[in-house]
Design a protein around this nucleic acid. Sequence first.
DNA 1: TGATTATGTGAAACCGCTTACGTCGCCGTG
DNA 2: CACGGCGACGTAAGCGGTTTCACATAATCA
Lengths: 374, 374
Amino acid sequence: MTKMPTPGAPPSPGHDGRPGRPVGLRDVARMAGVSTATVSRVLNTPERVSATLRERVAAASARLGWVPDGTARALATRRTGAVGAVFPTLSHGDFARAAEALQGELRSRGYTLLLACSHYDLAQEHLLVRQFVERGVDAVVLVGNAHDPQTIGLLDRLSVPYVKTFNYDPEWRHHCVGPDNRRAMHGLTRYLLRLGHRRFGVIAQSAHNNDRAAARLQGVRDALSEMGLSVRPQHLVEGRWTIAEGRALFRKIIEKKPWPTAVICGNAYLAVGAVLEATARGIALPGEMSIVGYDDVEIMQELPVPITTLRIRSDEVGRLAADYVVATLAGKQPSTELECEVEIMERSSSGPVPRASRRESVPRRAKGADAGRR
Amino acid sequence: MTKMPTPGAPPSPGHDGRPGRPVGLRDVARMAGVSTATVSRVLNTPERVSATLRERVAAASARLGWVPDGTARALATRRTGAVGAVFPTLSHGDFARAAEALQGELRSRGYTLLLACSHYDLAQEHLLVRQFVERGVDAVVLVGNAHDPQTIGLLDRLSVPYVKTFNYDPEWRHHCVGPDNRRAMHGLTRYLLRLGHRRFGVIAQSAHNNDRAAARLQGVRDALSEMGLSVRPQHLVEGRWTIAEGRALFRKIIEKKPWPTAVICGNAYLAVGAVLEATARGIALPGEMSIVGYDDVEIMQELPVPITTLRIRSDEVGRLAADYVVATLAGKQPSTELECEVEIMERSSSGPVPRASRRESVPRRAKGADAGRR
DNA sequence: TGATTATGTGAAACCGCTTACGTCGCCGTG
DNA sequence: CACGGCGACGTAAGCGGTTTCACATAATCA
């Protein structure tokens, strides 16, 4: 025995948990009097091991308090059982819930979630994905359809499966699960059109690096243009998605008359802000104006004026995403159900276009100027 | 070329990225005409490699699009650079923000976050921690001080560093970062006492497997008992932490008079619910009653009656936790700043005890019965 | 009963990267 | 001019599991 630190064959056949070296599969094997292969088998394919040995190994394993080393297994298996997800942020309840559901579903299938936030920055996202890939994730979950081409390239080159979430796009069909933002907003707009509204305001989320926001806006535009309508520039405002921002943007919209009779918000918090600002100013909802949002959060139905909005089951998105990647990893065809239902939650903040939507315009012009127009 | 799938020695000294085998460090080494050790060194200790080789390796690496295999590195290094965190849920904005901050801070230090939710279930938490440990996380972040002894035992036995968050307890001093729930609530209660309130209601979060909630309640009790006061049983209610629950619990409190003059809510959403219910019933805040919460969320300051509450920088908690584990992993002494500041955000939902708090009691008894008492 | 086929185990070769050592070339001294 | 020292690299032994393949032994069949 020279001065070898740890090299050479592992002598010292200590048979109990010595504090020195952590216990490994080999220690278990030795204590159970079997080969390492057998120990490995009781772990992975117990049915191929005789009951006797199985128990001997289990006992030894328990006595030694052995915790299998995942990294070693991953190296040998070429699978980590980990899935990486990059969300823009978790401050948004929607993403938080989706993340939670994603994690839960993945876990129940034996996978672990690696989570990171890109803060709506595609370069950052790329770095994170790269980090995930280096860590050996089996699959990746992304939000939205807009990504750095390099990101997708990397994933493709290494053939790492991935899903894009929160913006189902029928054009691409594959690789994406979630609500169809455009179609959802299209439907909500049509709902307002059916109520007779013709003059619309839009409080949109900034579409910078946010294809979901862009798709929503497109949905509104499409629905309107089908009726030969469009949003007046001064009635289209955009910004971040806080309540305070919603208030400020709403103020901008009503800066001067004529006001829109319906204001569509691209996000729950923006809608909450708009409604709070409107009621604070004594604007009757839906008497004088209708305000609707996208996405449902609890506060929306608890406010003095409950807010009409689209309910997106964001936890469903998380589950679908988990489903998708797990199926793909198992070599199966992912469920065909990739699009996620949305539902209009009709509440008190919206209603028929005010009959008296004529008493507008700054210098009280002729009434009914463009009320029931078209 | 028989039909060998991948076995045998890797002959075929192909020098370009063949679709077959993924490129590995060896391929890079071969293309750069250096040993594997050198490639590894340019990656980990570039300063110990001559500029010439460094560049040759970099070039080869880039040309091959090599992505180092983290699992292999982890196995060799005995470090994964991953930190596991178990939160009760992410639906709670606080945890979501903390998770986000934790991830951001960890990432900037080169670590990756593994995330999971326990749903306030300690058994579940133990399983998750176990899973993390098997995955080889370098450290673990937990929420609260209450945990399955086995969980802590496992961590200790494998000497995996961990922090407990969101409930700084001066008794334990170590291993925990966050606000001191008890002390914070103690302070908030004293604030109300200073305003003259003597009859308190408490809408608490269920303390089941939630030591933070328990600590908060204790804070209220301590502050009151210091004044010889206590909460009447019928004024102490508890439940989950939704807005709707807040409303319902508030209703229970005001079921019969005398009402408390101040209601302390154990959570932001409960407070929002209480305030909405109170205003809906025409109860003047703070004219007739004061309502305060714990924890600040945006909606609280945007409601018609902005709510007084404690601001906890939950992102700070995340950062502190990251700090703690990273420092510990580096063998350094964690920052001494483990406790996280809280601040009373005084808003309109609280004020001096109503002078007329005498017009209470069901059968309109003698006024001032116990108003300024003591 | 001997040949054949399941079935259960063990020996040993990896998985892809890190790193302790050893080697080699070059420079500075005595 | 030979020798010790030093730095840059290469060699090869792991890290802790998995898995292929060979090999017994037991069960099955002619």
